[in-house]
């Protein structure tokens, strides 16, 4: 839908995309982490590669597929939401959450497995970054799950319908953008931590 149509729909001012500013800033800070990680790796590539091989690449790959699938369901929800089919949007968001819940399980298993075999933040520099990057990403994921949980409730049931629908559409738009960012960041994190050092 072009911007002109949105303005004609009666919204006094379309400000949902301002979340793009947050996304750009958040990506920048992750970008900085990636560069610092690679710069720290410069002096000790063997240690970083050896540590990376202790991670289960298959689990990281599984998590990438889980997030892509969840992101896709949420993108789809956004498409039907724009067309006004909120019942379908709610259902798709709920499916997106259900799929994404598996990400938490897999990540939780990985953390448990690593911590119980004595691999912690202070094991070496690679694992400091492993826990920092995946940990901060995990916080983003948890916030995203809460946002999806709110979106799965659908538009406010008691507010006047036009108002409730306009506000739901705005939140659906912003919330799904945030969720795609969580997916997008995992792609670089997965490549950096699991793939670059594999074999």
């Amino acid at each position: 839908m072009p911007a002109a149509e949105l303005a004609a729909a009666g919204a006094p001012r379309e400000r949902a995309p301002a979340i793009w500013i947050f996304i750009a800033l958040d990506c920048s800070s992750f970008g900085l982490f990636f560069v610092v990680f690679m710069a720290q790796r410069l002096g000790q590539p063997a240690l970083f590669d050896h540590s990376s091989q202790q991670l289960y690449t298959a689990l990281g790959f599984l998590n990438a597929c889980i997030l892509i699938t969840s992101s896709w369901l949420v993108a789809w929800a956004n498409v039907v939401g724009r067309q006004g089919d909120f019942a379908q949007a709610k259902k798709l968001i709920a499916w997106g959450m259900a799929v994404a819940a598996c990400f938490g399980l897999v990540k939780g298993y990985e953390y448990y497995e690593k911590l119980s075999s004595g691999v912690t933040v202070s094991t070496n520099e690679f694992f400091t970054f492993y826990y920092a990057l995946t940990g901060i990403h995990f916080v983003h994921y948890l916030v995203g799950m809460v946002i999806l949980g709110v979106l799965a409730q659908g538009p406010h049931p008691y507010a006047p319908p036009d108002q409730a629908h306009a506000s739901y559409r705005k939140w659906l738009e912003g919330g799904s953008l945030y969720w795609h960012m969580v997916d997008l960041l995992w792609i670089f994190i997965f490549s950096l931590l699991y793939l670059v050092g594999a074999r």
Partner: peptide, 23 residues
């Protein structure tokens, strides 16, 4: 809006400080 998002980004990014007591 950008200033609001910027300040929210900064205070949310404080979550990285969680690493500080571990290293």
């Amino acid at each position: 809006a950008w200033a609001a998002w910027f300040s929210m980004f900064v205070v949310v990014s404080f979550a990285v400080l969680t690493m500080m007591p571990l290293v």
